[in-house]
Design a binder for these strands. Sequence first.
DNA 1: GTTGTTGCAAAGAATTTGCAGTCTA
DNA 2: TAGACTGCAAATTCTTTGCAACAAC
Lengths: 137, 137
Amino acid sequence: MKKKRNTKQKATVYRVVQSSNDHPTAEKVYERAKKELPSISLGTVYRVLKELVSEGKIKEIIVNKQSHFEKRTDHHHHFICRECGKIEDVETPLCRYTCRKVEKKGYVVEDIEYKFYGLCDKCAQKLNIKEKEVAQV
Amino acid sequence: MKKKRNTKQKATVYRVVQSSNDHPTAEKVYERAKKELPSISLGTVYRVLKELVSEGKIKEIIVNKQSHFEKRTDHHHHFICRECGKIEDVETPLCRYTCRKVEKKGYVVEDIEYKFYGLCDKCAQKLNIKEKEVAQV
DNA sequence: GTTGTTGCAAAGAATTTGCAGTCTA
DNA sequence: TAGACTGCAAATTCTTTGCAACAAC
């Protein structure tokens, strides 16, 4: 296989993801990377992100048919707010019972992904207030 | 709100999904619908599928950034084979423990989606055989 | 006859890719 | 200096949309 090289672009993209506490899209990573390395291109960002994912250095999570990236590579799940679109990490124990149920049929489970959709605390609060106002009319 | 009309196209798309035991993409639904109604267009299939989903008559599941559709609208989850791409329904008990853990922070969980990735029985068997053959060389 | 729907084709959005020039090792 | 990598723009893929013709009710 071919030998990989260290380039400014790779280092920058990696650094951007590592210093992001949200779950940026490729476009967002691109925006942030450009601040450090203005000449970087979106295509390169896509290429590097893909490489980092396949090397297991970062993780990809797909929300609404769009890739988002995160520095955490350990096993965890996500909550997605339908109002503000915020993605938040969720720690859950592996559901052994469920896995075994799937595997019993001869299936091999290699990865599990849980996604929780709803409203984050802030949006829930906002919407409750709104609902009450509407109800009063 | 505007009154909906019953058209051949809507009836056909609905019938196709109802009689599908796999999880067809829009394109696949289109292919199947064309057999019944050759003049139907892909755009219409997309429009009708979207409408059926929003009416709660069918469900949408997104795999690999692509929409698939299914007749089951009750709560269940999915297993996706990384080899053959097959999507299979998985029955799991709601993980109350996990939900409560998420909700404790003030979050409102409205929907939960579990996806299990791996190998289906057939592909697991095939790959095992292959692996053994490779190992013997 | 209204007006919701369709077919068509063009537009969009996200991502990938071919290529010639550039830079790392 | 070989060849991995980049920037750029064109191409792909899936999906949505504008519009004039069509067809339910």
